[in-house]
């Protein structure tokens, strides 16, 4: 099954792609997704993570428009058809 992953703002600056489809298996989590993406785009690591290894709170992750902080955090499980967004810092 596939999910869509979108990259916004400074994350887009690194990936250079706005949206892609990724094949996932049962039990696939946000934590795993982040690892897989960082493996492909190494520069994302210094953006997404603070020195202590925690997620930079100015970078947000949503699943179907809901911030993972209001779901199960990094352990949020993904299903086919989900839309994940990795969102860089923003203001307006």
């Amino acid at each position: 099954m596939y999910i869509k992953v979108r990259y916004f703002g400074l994350v887009y600056s690194v990936t250079g792609i706005y949206e892609e489809e990724i094949l996932i298996e049962d039990g696939y989590t946000i934590s795993r997704l982040i690892k897989d993406i960082v493996d492909r785009f190494e520069d994302l690591s210094r953006l997404l993570f603070l020195e202590d290894g925690s997620l930079n709170p100015l970078y947000r992750i949503t699943v179907n428009g809901r911030d993972i902080e209001h779901l199960d955090g990094l352990e949020t499980r993904l299903s086919g058809g989900d839309v994940v967004a990795l969102i860089g810092p923003a203001g307006g």
Binding site: F8, G9, L10, L58, G88, A90, G91, G92
Partner: peptide, 15 residues
Amino acid sequence: HDISKALHQFGTAVL
């Protein structure tokens, strides 16, 4: 600040 850097890179339209 990261938000200042983001505003520089993409402007407010990043929203």
